[in-house]
């Protein structure tokens, strides 16, 4: 089992950006997408997110599985939303939906509008996931602490993020040896336990030792930090982060996008659901 962040985009154009850029872009973009319900515009945003994603040069073969899961997960949520809720969303246009058919058993009306809504949601989700992926693969794990510090997170907590990354490899090795130790005692933790309760109860032989040992082993680390003056004054960070011109351009672009989306909502119809005419035609026979 390999439990470690995978810095697959190392050296790519996006990985060379200030890590704060990648973090900020996620938020600018999410709040842009939030305001747009016109599928044609959402599709445009998806294209932008894909172009952005491509600059991280993440090898496809190594994250194919991640994408499969994303598609399945989003598809499931959106479909359920359509079948269960049938589109009772404020973004839906006023007026009677053009019903295509009624879903068996549930009796939910499936309309031209609810199908459009599902497709739009799918594209929106996909665009957000695409923008979020580079955070996982194109930021050096050791840069997170300083990046969040420079974004205003208090010093101790920013360092706590670094420390979390520091603990990942050692604690996952400890976890693995606990799993091994219990296997020797005839306990196969990964063997398929089905029921809710069984699965939880069966996890105690691995979770309890891992947790208790990790906490008990913290004493020396705490001393090591106190003995080197942690938290006693303003600290410097060895890693210097400076936005360069390209960083500013990327940020500027996504800010502009956010502004445009906001204005579009006030002035235009970008925040209204768009239903293709052919779907309405089908519904109306």
């Amino acid at each position: 089992m390999n439990i470690a962040p995978r810095y697959l985009g190392r050296g790519s154009w996006l990985a060379r950006r200030d890590p704060r850029v990648l973090i900020l872009v996620v938020f600018f973009f999410i709040f842009t997408v939030l305001q747009i319900w016109d599928a044609r515009l959402v599709f445009g945003l998806l294209i932008i997110s894909v172009i952005y994603y491509r600059t991280a040069a993440i090898p496809w073969a190594q994250i194919r599985r991640n994408w499969t899961v994303v598609f399945l997960f989003i598809g499931m949520l959106v479909t359920v939303n359509m079948l269960v809720a049938g589109g009772n969303v404020e973004a839906m246009p006023e007026g009677e939906p053009d019903v295509l058919f009624y879903f068996p058993l549930l009796g939910t009306p499936i309309s031209a509008q609810s199908v459009s809504l599902a497709v739009t949601q799918f594209l929106r989700y996909l665009a957000m996931a695409t923008i979020g992926f580079p955070v996982a693969f194109a930021i050096a794990p050791s840069d997170f602490g300083v990046a969040f510090r420079r974004l205003g997170v208090p010093e101790k907590f920013a360092f706590g993020i670094d420390l979390t990354f520091r603990f990942l490899p050692s604690l996952s090795a400890d976890f693995q040896s606990t799993v091994d130790a219990q296997r020797i005692r005839g306990f196969d933790w990964s063997a398929g336990a089905t029921g809710f309760l069984t699965r939880v109860r069966r996890s105690t032989p691995v979770i309890v030792p891992t947790v208790v040992n990790a906490i008990a082993g913290a004493e020396d680390t705490i001393d090591a930090m106190d003995l080197r003056g942690f938290g006693t004054g303003r600290r410097t960070w060895l890693r210097l982060l400076v936005y360069d011109r390209e960083d500013w351009l990327v940020l500027g672009f996504f800010v502009a996008l956010l502004v445009a989306a906001t204005l579009g909502g006030f002035l235009g119809t970008s925040d209204e659901l768009w239903t293709p005419q052919f779907l309405i035609d089908i519904a109306q026979g």
Partner: peptide
């Protein structure tokens, strides 16, 4: 918020993530 707080927090987060 002491060194202890931060170390426990980081251990908790790492364990939960793992």
């Amino acid at each position: 918020v002491t060194s202890r707080t931060i170390v426990y927090a980081a251990i908790g987060a790492a364990l939960y993530g793992i």
